[in-house]
């Protein structure tokens, strides 16, 4: 179940601003699934344009609380543990300020280094 939560708009910008974050990638599996399905179909037309309007940081409201997933690329000079911890802490602080909802998980995936 995926719901667009009120604070999600700001999460992309927030994560991008964390020192050491070089790139932000779509974290929702939906994007990948849609893209793959489109391309694998016996297409009668050009593949769909990249889906850019979905927020890249993925958020979902589930029974046990909010789940946030951010997929990032970091600079070669950075430590993945430090940058991912900074991203986590920034998201956690943002959630506390935005009504402090129960948090089930904040996931940070370092998908690319350098």
């Amino acid at each position: 179940m995926t719901t667009v939560l009120p604070f999600t708009d700001q999460l992309d910008a927030l994560v991008r601003q964390v020192p050491g974050v070089d790139a932000l990638y779509p974290a929702g599996s939906i994007v990948a699934t849609v893209l793959t399905a489109t391309l694998d179909a016996v297409a009668h037309r050009a593949p769909a344009a990249p889906l850019v309007h979905t927020p890249l940081v993925h958020t979902a409201q589930q029974a046990d609380g909010v789940r946030v997933t951010a997929k990032i690329g970091i600079g070669a000079a950075e430590s993945s543990a430090e940058v991912s911890a900074r991203v986590h802490d920034a998201i956690a602080a943002h959630l506390r300020q935005a009504g402090n909802p129960p948090v089930a998980q904040i996931a940070v995936i370092v998908a690319r280094i350098g």
């Binding site: 793959t36 391309l39 694998d40 297409a43 037309r45 050009a46 593949p47």
Partner: peptide, 16 residues
């Protein structure tokens, strides 16, 4: 255009 599409799709499949 179809030839272009086919080559593009081929490379995306290849990558995967």
């Amino acid at each position: 255009d179809e030839s272009d599409d086919v080559v593009q799709e081929s490379f995306i499949t290849a990558w995967q």
